[in-house]
């Protein structure tokens, strides 16, 4: 079985592309990083990949709202190739700014009748880095296969997931699309700061679309692919693998590699 090919898409202001490509390689994929100009110049280039990744950063400075400009550029040029990519079973992973792009572009939540969604300013009013505990909900998305809690860092100023329609969150939850939630130390879904770092209703940390194949999350799995990445490794030792690596591995496995 050939290794799946992962495209890491880089735009002006993207700054997590190198470690994201590294994580894909560690998980057994082949990773290539392309500048947005190359993708927009040859939209069919997407056809040779099985995975599309939108990494973290501040695409276009997050001017006009996080992820907004990249979402707009992708929407105008990549609409058809992206639909083709998804139709043939491709996986899309958006991390942090990439998640913001997927939401602003309407690819997430991606279900009809939910109205608009956005990722907006943290309740704290500023950018914040901290480690968070997360509870995955397996079932729908190939990126998450069990409900074992995982620990990943968040680093964002605009991570509060908000839906325009009042009952939209309940509908998303019942459709199984809310696949990653912030949790407290004891593993309960966290509604309060700092366990819920941004004030997201429903403690939403990550979402998938109705197919499960488009997955976006605010925390950074590529920053926990080695036990040394964990903030407390000098206390707990180095024998556990980084939690974030599982997300990349699951995707590679789902593609049959």
């Amino acid at each position: 079985m050939p290794k799946p090919r992962a495209l890491v898409l880089r735009a002006p202001g993207t700054n997590c592309d190198e470690e994201t490509a590294f994580a894909w390689r560690l998980a057994g994929a082949e990773a290539e990083t392309w500048h947005i100009g190359r993708v927009l110049g040859s939209p069919d280039g997407l056809d040779s990949f099985q995975i599309l990744t939108l990494p973290g950063g501040f695409s276009y400075g997050d001017d006009l709202g996080s992820g907004k400009i990249l979402a707009s550029r992708l929407g105008t040029v990549l609409g058809d190739p992206l639909r083709r990519f998804l139709d043939r079973g491709g996986l899309v992973l958006g991390i942090c700014n990439g998640f913001q792009v997927l939401v602003k572009a309407g690819l997430l939540p991606g279900a009809a009748g939910l109205g608009h969604a956005t990722l907006t300013f943290n309740d704290s009013g500023h950018f914040e880095s901290r480690w968070s505990r997360l509870i995955p909900t397996p079932g729908l998305s190939p990126f998450l296969l069990d409900d074992e809690p995982i620990e990943l860092p968040v680093a964002h100023g605009e991570g509060k997931f908000v839906l325009a329609e009042d009952d939209a969150l309940a509908r998303l939850e019942s459709a199984g699309q809310v696949v990653l939630r912030y949790a407290d130390e004891s593993g309960r879904v966290a509604s309060t700061y700092p366990a819920n770092p941004n004030g997201s209703p429903g403690a939403v940390a990550g979402l998938c679309d109705p197919t499960g194949r488009v997955f976006g999350l605010m925390p950074h799995p590529e920053r926990h692919v080695d036990p040394l990445h964990h903030p407390r490794w000098t206390r707990r030792g180095l024998d556990r693998e980084g939690d974030g690596l599982r997300i990349f591995r699951n995707a590679v496995r789902a593609l049959g590699a």
């Binding site: 700054n15 190198e18 590294f22 500023h126 880095s129 901290r130 040394l228 990445h229 407390r232």
Partner: peptide, 23 residues
């Protein structure tokens, strides 16, 4: 101050500026 800075981007920070049981 420290939490307003992204001190882990590039995934190379292996001893963080804040350490301990509660980071």
């Amino acid at each position: 101050i420290v939490r307003q800075y992204d001190h882990e981007v590039q995934a190379r920070t292996v001893v963080k500026p804040l350490v301990g049981v509660l980071d």
